[in-house]
């Protein structure tokens, strides 16, 4: 479904990714783990069309999507839950969700269905999105991405700064989303949590893929070596 083929991504003169290749099959949940600054977010942002690779390709359902603007990638069915949630502060919870409708894609996700997934959002539908707690904002960010009816959803550090009990709740909904047939790519620093839900895992180290495989096939030692490089 998604093929990232040896991409090199730069921020000005600084190279963030060195020939990174990953593959994601339809219906899979893939985790991308790695330490701070390993290039996880850069990889997601490149897939989503926010950044352009200097070389290499990103293909989605056989189409090249690198170089396409972010809105066009979203309209093809790739949604992103951005790092730091990026809730629109001037908009209410409901309006934040309705923004996801702008991609004009058809599919199972509607306001009602997102409210069923996250009942707390229905209760607070008319409050400013920014007034929600951190966990609720993360639900809103996920719900907003779902509203665009994606086939592939990219989630960037959804556990960041949240209490463990909330993270567990969020990951339960991730599994619900997967069950609905949506392909999921999650970027995480929380290795244990992501290995529980992922079908396959890639580990990034200093801008390169240092490990890949099924969670069951990789040992703790391999992961810690791939994660820290020591």
């Amino acid at each position: 479904m998604l093929v990232v083929d040896s991409i090199e991504v730069f921020y000005g003169e600084f190279q963030a990714l060195f020939g990174v290749s990953i593959e994601v099959a339809e219906g899979e949940t893939v985790a991308i783990i790695g330490a701070n600054g390993a290039g996880k977010t850069t990889l997601l942002r490149t897939i989503a069309g926010v950044l352009r690779p200097r070389s290499g390709q990103v293909r989605y359902r056989g189409m090249r999507i690198d170089g396409r603007p972010a809105y066009a990638v979203t309209r093809l069915g790739v949604a992103m839950v951005p790092e730091g949630r990026k809730i629109f502060p001037s908009l209410s919870v409901r309006e934040n969700l309705l923004i996801g409708r702008q991609s004009r894609r058809k599919g199972p996700w509607s306001l009602e269905r997102v409210f069923d997934l996250f009942p707390v959002l229905r209760e607070r539908a008319d409050f400013p999105g920014i007034d929600l707690s951190g966990g609720q904002q993360q639900m809103l960010a996920i719900g907003r991405a779902l509203m665009s009816n994606p086939d592939l959803i990219l989630m960037d550090e959804i556990s960041l700064g949240l209490a463990p009990v909330i993270v567990r709740e969020l990951y339960e909904t991730v599994q619900e989303i997967t069950r609905a047939g949506t392909t999921v790519v999650i970027v995480e620093q929380d290795v244990t949590r992501s290995l529980q839900v992922a079908d396959r895992v890639y580990c990034l180290l200093e801008g390169e893929v240092s490990l890949s495989g099924r969670p069951a096939d990789v040992s703790r030692e391999q992961i810690s070596l791939a994660y820290f490089g020591v």
């Binding site: 926010v50 972010a70 809105y71 979203t74 309209r75 951005p82 923004i99 991405a145």
Partner: peptide, 9 residues
Amino acid sequence: TAAANLGIE
């Protein structure tokens, strides 16, 4: 950026 990521041109 967030707007573009949600399909807004």
